[in-house]
C-alpha cells in the first residue's frame, strides 16, 4: 500500500531518511502546484530523481527546497535510470548546503520562516520581494507569481495609507478569486503570501504573527 501525505506534515529530508534507513526500493512522487517530481530508492540508496527540467542530484536539490506538496511512496518500483551515485546522507547534506549557500544568514532566516508559515493551513506559498516586486526568494521554485502587479499592489497600498495619514498597514490582502494574496512588510522586504481564496484572515493572522516572532 502506498504511503501518501503532504510535505507540510512530513518533510522531504525525513522521507528520504526513512526510505534509506529502511533499505527500501520505492518511488517517491511529489506534486507541487501541478508540477511533478520523483525520487527513486533502491536498496536504501537514492539512485535517480527527476523534477522537470532537472534530473539526478539537481532534481533532488530543487525538490528539497519545497515546503509543501502532496507525496506518494510506492514500494517495489525500480528506477528507470541510475543518475545518482552519491550516498543519501551526503546528498541530503549537499542539498541543505545549497539552499543556504547564496546568502547563508538571510536564506536560513527565510527558510526557517517558510517552514513555519507553510505549516499554517490555507497558506499555499510565500514569496519575498522588494518594494519593486522583484523576487528575492520563495518557498517554492515557482517564480511565475512575481510580476509588476505585486509591485503595483504594494505601491497603491502605501499610497492609501499615506492619504489616510496612517502607517503602512500590518497586513494588506486582496482577493481575486481563486487567488488571495496577503502582503506584509518584513525587514527591508515584503512577504507575499498566496492563500486559498476562502481562508479567513482573522484566523491566520495570529498564526502568522507567531511565525514572525
Amino acid at each position: 500500500m502506498a504511503l501518501v501525505g503532504n510535505l507540510k506534515d512530513l518533510k522531504l529530508p525525513s522521507l528520504i531518511q526513512l526510505n534509506c534507513m529502511e533499505k527500501n526500493t520505492a518511488k517517491l512522487t511529489i506534486e507541487h502546484h501541478g508540477r511533478f517530481g520523483s525520487i527513486y530508492f533502491e536498496n536504501g540508496q537514492v539512485v535517480h530523481a527527476e523534477y522537470d527540467p532537472h534530473i539526478g542530484e539537481e532534481a533532488v536539490y530543487h525538490l528539497l527546497s519545497l515546503y509543501s506538496g502532496n507525496f506518494k511512496v510506492e514500494s517495489g518500483i525500480r528506477a528507470p535510470a541510475h543518475t545518482i551515485h552519491t550516498s543519501w546522507n551526503n546528498l541530503l547534506l549537499e542539498g541543505m548546503k545549497q539552499i543556504d549557500d547564496s546568502d547563508p544568514d538571510q536564506n536560513s532566516q527565510f527558510n526557517t520562516l517558510f517552514s513555519k508559515l507553510m505549516t499554517i493551513n490555507g497558506i499555499k506559498s510565500v514569496q519575498v520581494v522588494n518594494r519593486e516586486g522583484e523576487l528575492y526568494t520563495a518557498s517554492t521554485d515557482q517564480t511565475s507569481l512575481s510580476n509588476p502587479i505585486h509591485a503595483f499592489a504594494i505601491h497603491e497600498m502605501e499610497n492609501i495609507a499615506t492619504v489616510l495619514e496612517l502607517d503602512r498597514p500590518e497586513f494588506f490582502s486582496l482577493t481575486a478569486s481563486p487567488q488571495k494574496f496577503v502582503y506584509t512588510a518584513y525587514s527591508k522586504f515584503y512577504l507575499i503570501l498566496e492563500l486559498d481564496a476562502k481562508t479567513k484572515l482573522d484566523v491566520i493572522i495570529p498564526q502568522m504573527r507567531q511565525a514572525f516572532k
Binding site: 502587479i149 503595483f152 492609501i160 496612517l166 500590518e170 482577493t175 481575486a176
Partner: peptide, 23 residues
C-alpha cells in the same frame, strides 16, 4: 487608488472582489 489597483487586475483578466487593510 483602489480603482487603479482593481483596474490593474482587470487588465490581467482578473477581478478583485475584496481588499482588506489591517492595522
Amino acid at each position: 487608488y483602489l480603482l487603479r489597483l482593481s483596474g490593474a487586475y482587470v487588465s490581467k483578466g482578473q477581478r478583485i472582489s475584496e481588499f482588506e487593510f489591517y492595522w
